[in-house]
Simulated scan of single mutants.
Amino acid sequence: MVTIKDIANKLGVSISTVSKGLNGADDISEEMRQMVLDTAVEMGYAPKRGKKPGKRRVCILIENLEYENIDQFGYEIVLGFKLSAVRHHCEVSVIPTNLNLLTREKYDCFMLKNGFSGAFLLGFALHDDYIQQLNKTNVATVLLDNYNPNPFVGYVGTDGYHGIDMAIKHLHDYGHKKIALLNGSKNCMVTNDRRLAFLQAMERYSLKADPKLIANGYYVADCAKDYVSTFLNHGATAIMCASDLIASGVLYELKRLGVRVPRDVSVVGFDDLPIARRLSPSLTTIRQDRLSLGKSAFMMLEELINGINISKVLLKPELIVRDSTGPNPKL
C-alpha cells in the first residue's frame, strides 16, 4: 500500500509537505499541491479507510439528470442517499458536473483534492470520461444503472428485465400482439438493457418483435413526435416506453393525432414519477423505488469504503396498472 512517505520520496520533498498537499493546507503553493495530488493518484495512493463517524465526506456527482424537485427522476434518489448519510454522521456534497469540470481534472485527483472518501455518480453515459477513468480508480464509487468490473466500483439499480417482463405480460394478457418500444438514448447501459429485456419478454410470450416498432429516442417527452406516427402506420396497438417522460410525450402525440388511449392504443411507462398519476389518462407504469435506490447506494458506498467489494444491488420493480392500458381493439 502506498504511503505518504512513498510519495515524499518520489517527489524528493518532506512528509509534511505531502501531508499539507493532500489535506488542502494553504501554506504551500498551488503548484506543489497539484504535484502532490497528481503523484498520489499516479502511485495509487488511497486515504486510510474507516474514518471516525462525523469525519467522512462523500459526494454525489450528477450529470444530465434533473433532481431539484419531487417531480424529477433524481429527487428521491438524492433524498434517500442523504437520509442514510445523516444516520451514519456522513457529510454529503451534491455536485452538478459539466464537460468543463470533467475534462479539467481527473476523477481520482478531484476526489483526493476535496477530501471525499467516495462518490455516487448519477446520469453519466457510457462514453463519459469519468466513467472510463473508473477502470483504474481506487476510490469507492457507486454508479446508478451502470456497471464497471473494478472492485472499487459498485452498481445499484432496478431489475429492468423483470419490470419489462411484467409490462409485456400485462399487454399480452390484454391480447396485444403488435407492441412497440420507444427507448431512451443509445449511449446508456440501461437503454441497452431495456431493449434486450423487451426482446426477451416478447419471445417469452410468443410475440414477434418487429424492428419497425423499435426506436431509440431520448429520455424526454419531445422525442415522441418523431416515432409515434411510424408505430401507428405499422400497426402498433400498444407502446412500451423506457420512461414516464417519454410516455407523457407519447400520450400527447396520440391525442394530437386523434388516437384514443387506451381504446385504440395502450401505453406503458417506466419509473412511476409523480406525473404518471396526473396524466390523462393516468399512466400504467413500472415503479422504481427511487428513495430505496438512494438508500441502497449509500449502504453500498459505505461497504466499498470499508473494503467490502460489492458488485451489484438490484431492487425489484412493481407494475402499477392505471388507465392507459386496455384490451387490443383489433380482437
Rank of each mutant, 00 (worst) to 15 (best):
P211W: 11
S324F: 08
R290K: 15
K5T: 13
G157W: 06
R33K: 15
P329I: 07
K48F: 00
I239L: 12
I168N: 01
M202K: 09
L102P: 05
H172W: 05
S324G: 11
G326F: 03
V41D: 00
K106F: 11
M166D: 10
N100K: 15
I275M: 14
R290V: 05
G44W: 06
A242Y: 10
M111G: 14
E105D: 15
L144E: 01
I15N: 15
M240G: 01
F198V: 10
A197N: 07
H172Y: 13
R194T: 00
A297E: 01
I305G: 00
Y67L: 13
G50A: 09
L196E: 11
T237M: 08
G249W: 00
S296R: 02
M300H: 01
S311C: 05
N69T: 15
A215K: 11
R278I: 03
D272M: 02
T103Y: 14
L331S: 12
L283R: 00
Q133P: 03
S282V: 02
N138H: 04
Q200T: 12
S14R: 04
P149M: 13
L196S: 08
T17L: 11
G44E: 10
T17Y: 05
L112A: 06
L181W: 04
N114P: 06
K48I: 00
V78G: 12
A209F: 11
A46S: 07
V190L: 13
Y205S: 11
P281N: 00
A276W: 04
E68L: 15
K136I: 11
L291K: 07
L101N: 15
A209G: 12
M32H: 07
R57W: 07
K48V: 02
K186V: 12
G157F: 05
L304S: 02
C59S: 13
